[in-house]
Amino acid sequence: MNVTVEQEFVCRGHVACPGCGAVLAMRYVLDVLGKKTIVVLPACCWSVINNRYPTAAVKVPLFHTAFETAACVATGVRAALDMKGDNDTHVLAWAGDGGTFDIGLQALSGAAERNDDIIYVCYDNEAYMNTGIQRSSSTPFGAWTTTTPAKTFKTKQKKNIMDIMAAHRIPYAATATIAYPEDLMNKVRYAAGIRGTRFLHIFCPCPTGWKTAPDITVELSRNAVRARAFPLYEVFDGTRYRLTHEPAQEDRMPIAEYIKPQRRFAHLTEAEIQVMQDHADEEWGRLMKVTETWPAG
């Protein structure tokens, strides 16, 4: 491990499920952004993880807000700081996939189009986990959720939020995941050093919602990258791409192996798993093509 967490901004005693990936993401991001950060938190797992009044696990200012308002509240906070001449405090909108891909997409699009000076993190656990595992538009094909029972599992592919964000031509959008803290923290560091709307899509496995053992959270995160289900890359100005981690040939893993320990996929037939594989291959191919065609300088 070439990086470490220098300063803990997440306090022990938080109430995340054992093995929660979203806590690690918060820990890494806040370590890079530091004390001068204000978190805007819409409804999501972290609304609970932060623990109940009058205690708080997050040691920087944090504002709980409505599900769909992370981006616009963050914009407001930024505006207030700007009016006070505070240019060095980071405003961090911290939303789940539901709050980003679905209900919060409009506000996020608004902020991105205006290029509001905020860092927006979507910590993606691929369903509405806080409400008890309902499908979101980030839920991958094939997954069981309480609203997509195994018999009628989700038949639509995961929405490509990065494409949507890139289409806004924001200065920086990147994917990251907790198994690669150095990569993740480098991206946060880069984001912290520039202005405008910065979007980080952080993949955070969820033992509760994925029906996995709590000890394999990091492993699943790593395997998602190895299986190329979640590629690690950056997009600059929405137009120039860079892959930040390409799994070595011998580290590559078929989707089948990646999903094997996840009981949310337990019902899938080989043919259905092949659909997932084909999709991953196609998306990867597309990413390779854009990366080659429009490389970051």
């Binding site: 306090c11 022990r12 938080h14 995340a16 054992p18 093995g19 929660c20 033992p207 000890d215 959270t217």
Partner: peptide
């Protein structure tokens, strides 16, 4: 560690866990 429960100061050459907060996830 999602529970920030690893005590890194080595004791007997290995880290330890803060049993007050470790949820036992096993990561």
């Amino acid at each position: 560690c999602p529970d920030m429960s690893i005590i890194t100061e080595p004791r007997n050459g290995v880290p330890a866990t803060d049993t007050d907060y470790c949820k036992g996830c096993g990561i």
